[in-house]
Design a protein around this nucleic acid. Structure first.
Lengths: 134, 134
DNA sequence: TCGACTGTATTAGTATAACTAATACAGTCT
DNA sequence: AGACTGTATTAGTTATACTAATACAGTCGA
């Protein structure tokens, strides 16, 4: 699993790491049971502080994406969000509402946006998706 | 045009304002030529500092959404992003890639996501959309 | 022409968040 | 038992967001 940071991004480093992990899981580049690079190893690779990696792994654990075992490592659960269905639906709505608004601002048509979404969805490994807790 | 702040959002206030303006434009709640609330008026309404509103309007101006006229006010151009086509396409790809990844994490199917996007797109006023600079 | 608005600019300050550095402890695995 | 792993804590720096105050310059309508 490759994790890169975008130095030009305004997004906090720990959030970029967390997103990269979710992206690897979603695209099939990583799977349930995989062990993430250790805190120190990833910190060295990215030339950042280990505490920053810890923050990313903490966030992922809070969202149910990973489980950390002291002394053993940090593992992908393969599980999705543990939020209730209503909360997840609300997050999805908000997510796509923002994306649609931003796409409108960028000057794209509704069909442009649908096509772009299809391309993004094709990259994802829905066959191996673990559904969220009902 | 209604602008509300979400106190629970981690998003900076000035970005919430900028997004609200883009959203009003996209949904037809506001149109080219409309004047935004003045810096002081919006600051009073939202109980924030006028400089924070200035920051939002500056960001919108940089993106081509508004034009500010000293003494006269701040007006919606109705124009979209002024980025080159390649830049806009890249932003769209990135936008939807992130949305798709997050939706996957939330446990939704590809069809769930398409439907949710359709709902969001239906809210937008594509008939009145001003295309971005070619 | 003047008053009440508008945007613009600047300086100074506070609070918070992100990240860093260092150190040490406890668990795991080979 | 050694080399790894995660976990915790304290302390510090930097950057960002927001605030407060003040003053200047432009617009518009009466």
């Amino acid at each position: 699993m490759q994790i890169h940071l975008d130095p030009r991004s305004a997004e906090p480093i720990f959030e970029q790491i967390a997103y990269a992990v979710k992206s690897a899981l979603a695209t099939g580049a990583a799977a349930e049971g995989d062990r993430l690079p250790s805190v120190r190893e990833l910190a060295r690779e990215l030339a950042i502080n280990p505490n920053t990696v810890v923050r990313a792994y903490e966030a992922l654990e809070r969202e149910g994406v990973v489980v950390r075992r002291q002394g053993a490592g940090c593992f992908l659960t393969g599980r999705g969000s543990e939020l209730a269905a209503a909360g997840r639906r609300r997050q999805l709505q908000e997510l796509l509402r923002r994306a649609a608004t931003e796409a409108f601002h960028l000057g794209f048509s509704a069909d442009d946006v649908r096509r772009a979404l299809d391309q993004s969805l094709e990259r994802l490994d829905f066959d191996r998706q673990r559904k969220a807790t009902p």
